[in-house]
């Protein structure tokens, strides 16, 4: 077994739409922007690291998460999408591969319906954003957050492998803090926008949707709902994959992204 060499990112604050936004960067090549999950950015993990071997990875804290300033005025995911569109302008990046995870996938989809000029590819990984035709999105507000994370894993032992027997208070702080912004923009309706499906056909940029068919947070059939509305979409269902699929299968998911964007 080889030990992975981490390309530790550098961080900086950029001012976007009057907000201080924290971004991390690592790697060289075409830009790839990752929008994190509702749990917030936890660490430079194997998934981000693998992508940084092929791309100039930019991994921001979404507004109101992590070290990015909270927009008190924001009330829905779309508000964060607008700020992200502006971030791309401020960074002056083009031909972006936009990767959205969970809530970040929701925000990425909203973003692309508004302005896709700087995007060359989109990859949405177990994205929220559409009300499931079948089943429901698991409500993180009514369960312990550690249990919510466990629900995201196809293999429960991965939780202990990552966090040990007791989750470090710093991680709990990030989760608790992230939940506040998640609630501010997605308390109701929870994790979807009824208007989004009607606008997805605007997106012409090639869009890859990835779901694991063992996802117990968002029914994986939502992937097909995205495809039914996108004009240039492709669905990849991973057998046995859970919700936090990029965490459990970093090699496979990063390879799919590299393949989709080349």
């Amino acid at each position: 077994m080889t030990i992975e060499t981490l390309n530790e990112p550098t961080s900086r604050i950029v001012n976007v739409a009057g907000l201080d936004i924290n971004i991390r960067e690592s790697g060289e090549g075409k830009p790839l922007v990752i929008l994190h999950r509702s749990t917030g950015y936890l660490e430079w993990d194997s998934f981000a690291n693998k992508l940084s071997e092929s791309f100039h990875v930019i991994y921001p804290d979404l507004p109101g998460f992590g070290n990015s300033e909270r927009p008190d005025w924001a009330r829905e995911s779309r508000d964060l999408s607008i700020v992200m569109v502006e971030l791309f302008k401020v960074l002056d990046i083009k031909d972006i591969t936009l990767v959205g995870l969970g809530l970040g996938g929701f925000i990425a989809a909203e973003l692309a319906t508004m302005n896709q000029e700087r995007l060359s590819n989109i990859v949405l990984i177990s994205p929220a954003g559409i009300k499931p035709d079948e089943g429901e999105i698991l409500d993180q507000m009514l369960i312990e957050h550690a249990d919510y994370i466990r629900h995201g894993l196809a293999d429960p032992s991965h939780f202990e492998n990552k966090f040990g027997d007791e989750v470090h208070p710093d991680i709990q702080d990030i989760w608790e803090f992230s939940r506040i912004m998640t609630a501010r923009i997605s308390w109701s309706p929870y994790m979807f926008n009824r208007r989004l499906p009607h606008l997805l056909n605007i997106i012409t940029v090639p869009t890859l949707i990835i779901f694991g068919n063992s996802d117990t947070v968002i029914p994986y059939t939502v992937g097909q709902q995205f495809i039914n509305n996108l004009s240039n979409g492709q669905l990849k269902v991973i057998d046995g994959g859970g919700h936090l699929i990029e965490w459990e299968m970093p090699d496979k998911i990063s390879e799919l992204i590299v393949g989709h964007s080349s």
């Binding site: 312990e144 957050h145 208070p169 709990q172 702080d173 608790e176 803090f177 506040i180």
Partner: peptide, 16 residues
């Protein structure tokens, strides 16, 4: 006890 000794922002101290 932790909150009372903490210098972190309030919102970071919310915990189950």
């Amino acid at each position: 006890a932790r909150d009372n000794n903490s210098e972190k922002p309030d919102s970071r101290n919310v915990r189950a």
